[in-house]
Computed example of a mutant assay.
Amino acid sequence: METTSSFLKSVSKRVWAAPQRPFRVCSWNRETKKWVTAGTLEELKERAAQALLMSTLLTLVCEEDGTELDSDEFFMALPDNTVFMGLKPGESWKPHPLNQRDGHKPRDNKPRAGKDIAQVTFDLYKKSPKDVFGSLNVKATYQGLYSVSADFQCLGPKKFLREALKLLSTLLNTAGYLLISTAKVIRRVIQGADFLEAQQSKAVANTEYWH
């Protein structure tokens, strides 16, 4: 009976499990970046700690602005591929060096004549040292309310070679089809010319016969 109850609990947990979503996590100095999937905030914290090799419970903040991720409602409202920063006790969020000017002054503190409408960020990274080219993550934010992100992942050497061979095979098949079609057209033209020449010769022979 106990085994049946455990089995039903396991099945129920699988059926009602939250869908897995992709996210990226990085260390406080942004030197380590990893991909993780999670369906809840607790799963994200646990897998982020494993990916970043942190033994202690960590605090997750948005890598872009340092906002702490402290509720499942906030977690569910964030889009896929959001980048989080994992912080251990004693560590704190700092803005990206590219977003700073004049020492440690954030770029946003510089007086501006107008109001920001949209912001686009580009993040080039590698999921594996074996990747031939880096992957690119593009994130666009409109008026700080709506955000859209796209992730362009590149391939490793084996996958890159396989895709290149597939493309070459497709090009060769297309070229072969064009050559066969061209040969058929040329053969029909030659056959038509031979037929016309034979008809003309026959007409000339008939004319000479009657004369």
Rank of each mutant, 00 (worst) to 15 (best):
R107Q: 13
S128V: 02
N99Q: 15
G103L: 10
P79K: 08
P89F: 03
H96N: 08
R101S: 13
P97L: 04
V120Y: 03
W93I: 00
L124S: 08
N137P: 08
D108G: 08
V132E: 08
V132R: 11
D108N: 11
D108P: 06
M85R: 01
F75K: 00
K88P: 01
N99T: 10
L98A: 10
D108H: 13
L87Y: 00
T141H: 03
K105S: 12
K139E: 09
A140T: 15
L98D: 13
A140C: 13
T82P: 02
I117S: 06
D123I: 01
G134R: 03
H96G: 01
L98N: 11
V138E: 03
D123A: 07
E91A: 01
V83K: 01
A140K: 11
N137M: 14
F74L: 11
K126M: 08
P89D: 04
D80H: 14
A113T: 09
P89H: 04
D102P: 06
F133Y: 13
K139S: 09
M85K: 01
K115T: 15
K110H: 14
K105F: 05
K139H: 08
R112P: 04
N81E: 13
T121P: 03
F74Y: 14
K94R: 09
L87K: 00
D123P: 05
P97F: 04
Q119A: 12
G114H: 11
K126N: 10
A140N: 09
V83E: 00
V132A: 05
H104V: 10
P106A: 07
A140E: 14
D102S: 14
D108Q: 13
H104G: 09
K127Q: 12
K126G: 04
V132H: 09
F84S: 00
P95E: 07
E91P: 02
F133E: 13
A118G: 07
L136N: 03
A140D: 12
Y125L: 07
H96W: 07
N99K: 14
P97E: 05
A77D: 15
V138W: 02
H104S: 14
D116A: 13
Y142G: 06
L124W: 06
N81F: 13
S135I: 06
W93M: 01
D102C: 13
R112E: 15
F84Y: 03
P95H: 04
L78I: 04
V138L: 07
N81W: 10
V138F: 02
T82H: 05
P79Y: 05
D102Q: 15
M85T: 03
G90D: 06
P129V: 03
G86K: 01
N81R: 10
T141P: 04
V132S: 07
Q119R: 15
G114F: 10
S128Q: 09
G103K: 10
D131W: 09
H104Q: 14
I117E: 10
D131C: 12
F75E: 00
R107N: 11
W93Y: 02
K110Y: 14
S92R: 01
D116Y: 08
N109W: 12
I117C: 07
V132P: 02
P129C: 02
D102N: 15
K127A: 08
H96L: 07
V138C: 06
Y125D: 03
